[in-house]
Amino acid sequence: MEKKKRAGGLGWRRKGFILAFLAPTLTAFAIFYLYPIVTVIFTSFCKWDYTNIKTPQFWGWDELWDNYQYIFQTYPYFWEALRNSSAWALLGAVVQVPVATLIALAFSRKIKGVRTIRNIYIIPNMISTAAMGMIFLQLYSPLYGVVNPVIRLFNKGFDENILLLKGPAFWAMTCAYIFFTGTTTLLILGNIMAVPEDVREAAVLDGADGLKQDWYITLPMIKGTLKTVSVLAATSGFLLYNEVYFLTKGAAGTYSISYVIRELAITSPRTQFGRANTVAVVQILAGMVIIVLINGLYSISWKKKKEGCR
């Protein structure tokens, strides 16, 4: 009802307000992203490499899918990269977010020293991922690292480089970033603290306490944030680059989508912009899929939960 009134009486003001408030962001988007997005999509259908760097050339309708064919069928690292990146996206959502939530809940309780721990916990996230890559390279070093001695406790005589073992290398790389959930925790904690007091009081009257209160009251209240951080965690997992660059350079089956794009566009002396942008299109589409999936999952699970509550 109220909405109608606004639309009627203050239509022009409302429109003007919306436009004015959106304008800066949309301008930034237009100058910074719109052109690249259009270029990426268009040139993924072009022959565009070192021979014609200034003038991308449309493949024509007959050969429209040429780049895609190359990437899907010929390029050796694409599927491996897509598999890894998807796995990292999934791990971001199912490992990082629950861990971050648990820690955020712990941080929200009043315990001595919790503030100090909270402040310490965010510090690793202030170190750039490049620097973290370098640190973990040292930790994983087979001669001097700290990981091999631990393995040797269980498997005497183990002297391989875990970053070169197919399988373990993937997990080693995962461990190099996945537990540093400082920023995610911060986002969740901020929202937990914003849950209104009276809501909690009501919960206590119902006899909900501790974990129960968290599960039935706090978490549903912050589901919007959980959804957002799930998207962010999955996204950053999907876009993993620095860890690959510093730890393995793709050896032992650890290519990622971002790494592949750079290999094609920059490392290759043949400067294959067209093909790199084909992978970029896949990256953008995959990102959309991630977002839709997470949105879907959250709306389904919460519907169920609500029914369960009653």
Partner: peptide, 16 residues
């Protein structure tokens, strides 16, 4: 607008 903004997260820096 939401979709457009989401999509910016996935544009590789090489394209930018």
């Amino acid at each position: 607008i939401s979709i457009l903004l989401y999509s910016t997260m996935f544009i590789p820096p090489t394209a930018l």
